[in-house]
């Protein structure tokens, strides 16, 4: 399968979505990312049992931080997908990219550019 997904998506690999840290997510925004999403395994399929649930809770935490900072919480999202679902991966990448394009550039980057 040679599936196309937007070139603007930069993939950072982790052994489990549970390894993602609130700080990693915030760092991405600090460095100017317009959006961040975490792709974890299907709920119930985590090899470490609850990694993907933990990831979702951290994503929700960061949504609240973004809100408090006056940024759209939609700039961060959690998606669940199976590693066998290549097309789903590409579809989510396109969907999320479109969402972020609609939201426009991150106000962090915009202010830096100005």
């Amino acid at each position: 399968m040679r599936l196309q997904y937007p070139a603007s998506v930069r993939v950072i690999q982790l052994p489990c979505s549970g390894r993602v840290d609130i700080l990693h997510l915030l760092k991405a925004f600090e460095e100017g990312a317009d959006g961040v999403y975490v792709a974890g395994c299907m709920e119930g399929d985590c090899h470490f049992l609850t990694g993907n649930f933990k990831a979702r809770r951290k994503v929700n935490y960061v949504k609240k931080v973004l809100e408090q900072l006056g940024m759209e919480p939609e700039r961060i999202e959690m998606y669940n997908m199976s590693s066998a679902e290549g097309p789903r991966f590409a579809q989510v990448a396109r969907e999320f990219t479109q969402r972020i394009q609609e939201l426009g550039p991150s106000p962090v980057k915009a202010a830096q550019a100005a």
Partner: peptide
């Protein structure tokens, strides 16, 4: 230490956002 990192990062985002 962890919360220091989170708060400092959040404040930096706010600062950057405000230019």
């Amino acid at each position: 230490e962890k919360e220091v990192g989170i708060l400092a990062t959040a404040l930096r985002i706010a600062r950057k956002k405000a230019g």
